[in-house]
Design a protein around this nucleic acid. Structure first.
Lengths: 245, 245
DNA sequence: CGGTTGATTGAGGCTGCTCAAAAGGTGTGG
DNA sequence: CCACACCTTTTGAGCAGCCTCAATCAACCG
């Protein structure tokens, strides 16, 4: 590990983007395609790879013995996943494709070497790990304290911001959304029935609608007002760097 | 970062304990005492230290603008906290003392140096980071899918196991528990009133009781049966190594 | 002893769940 | 091109878990 790395700092965004670009050299030549619903990394699997999501959505999900399920993370294009497996033992949860997805594979060994020799690669990897923890913290707050409406508003805004960052715009007011309401419920800790009702209310009030697997945010201010209590205080613009990449 | 580090492996426990012992040389001479309720690391503070909890309980907590609060992590003696601040920017959440606590401080710079030069120190630090993520994942599952009863049972068992590991026994069936029911509610995403009712039921059914700030598990099997759906599949014995230390 | 903090209990209400059924969409095979 | 199966969304009715508000009780402390 190089020296101290400071994340969430505007001046680091170019270094971040550089690091991301350098990962290109480490990826296996041919990205792999996965159909929606298929498993990308099996539960408890030990594999020699780290992945970068190129297109589509994937999620880490825990299946409870009695049939309940809970998503632990949703990855969007540009995200690295199974990144910690390069440094530590494998995760006990599966990673599945939420939509059709294409994925680049990076050999753990080569990534580790690059991590040690190139500070920008190290920055890119560390950013992912820290970002993931930030999301987990927000997720805990959302599940622990948020109402259904707050959780949904918060999530839709988060996706909007993350997709916007990758696309280079500030925020995506319209974006494809591959999750079924059932999966959305398993992200939010709600039943699909209740998700549906809340979405209907938000739609009828003209805040946001999901039609044909596309989210349309009609009233961003009002939506943000609902999600406001769940917003964290972190500076959020570091991810923007990956836009240029 | 040395080479790949495999966690949760029995054969690594001695190395883990060694790493922990080596941290002694890095701690400032005089541990600091904090009274219950005081802030150890302020929100957004940039400080030059990592901490190791010697005695007492501390927690990372997020305060929402409207008064709600959610704990993101509870640290028990032996845990390192603010560990990521050695490598990345500071966290946006405060760390507060849940009971009277004594805390050792480690200079970030010296810790980083040790991290790079000593694989056992690196292992100890990495273990903490990964363990923290494991807890966060479990926490998300617990909040998203667990009933109040399941969450409480799961949490009391987790503390039991963690304290047992530190004490060198398999599990602590009786342990001091400094949290108020209000704080417990903010850990579990429940109101203190409801925590109280569920605890009453568990007490009346002879499963577990909390009296005088002491948890007594009377029927471990029954309690585990309740928490069972929330248990993760991870091998849990890596932490045992820290017992000997 | 008054004051404060935390535990406990009650009554009542709302959010979100369960069960169930119908409607819309999509792909497949005849 | 239709018919069918399957998946997802939508809607209804009823219920329960958890919350709110509020009051009482217990413990501790100056």
């Amino acid at each position: 590990m190089p020296t101290a790395i400071c994340l969430h700092r505007p001046e680091l965004t170019t270094a971040l983007a550089n690091g991301d670009r350098k990962l290109d050299d480490l990826t296996a030549p041919c990205p792999r395609a996965f159909a929606a619903g298929t498993t990308i990394v099996a539960q408890g699997a030990e594999h020699g790879f780290v992945y970068r999501l190129r297109t589509g959505w994937v999620g880490r999900v825990r299946q409870l013995p009695d049939g309940r399920a809970q998503y632990l993370m949703v990855f969007l294009p540009g995200d690295l996943f199974a990144i910690k497996s390069a440094f530590v033992a494998a995760h006990p949860d599966a990673v599945v494709a939420l939509s059709d997805a294409t994925v680049e594979r990076l050999e753990q060994r080569r990534l580790r070497e690059a991590f040690e020799s190139d500070p920008e690669v190290a920055l890119r990897c560390t950013w992912q790990i820290v970002e993931e923890e930030r999301r987990l913290h927000n997720w805990v707050v959302s599940l622990g304290q948020g109402s259904a409406e707050e959780r949904i508003a918060h999530l839709l805004i988060e996706f909007s911001a993350r997709l916007g960052a990758t696309a280079g715009t500030a925020q995506a007011l319209e974006y494809p959304f591959p999750l079924t309401q059932d999966q959305l419920g398993n992200v939010l800790g709600l039943t699909s029935v209740h998700v549906n009702r809340v979405l209907r209310r938000l739609r009828e009030e003209g805040l946001v609608s999901i039609r044909n697997r596309v989210v349309s945010i009609h009233d961003p201010e009002a939506l943000e007002r609902i999600a406001e209590p769940l917003r964290d205080a972190t500076v959020q613009n570091a991810g923007d760097a990956l836009a240029a990449g």
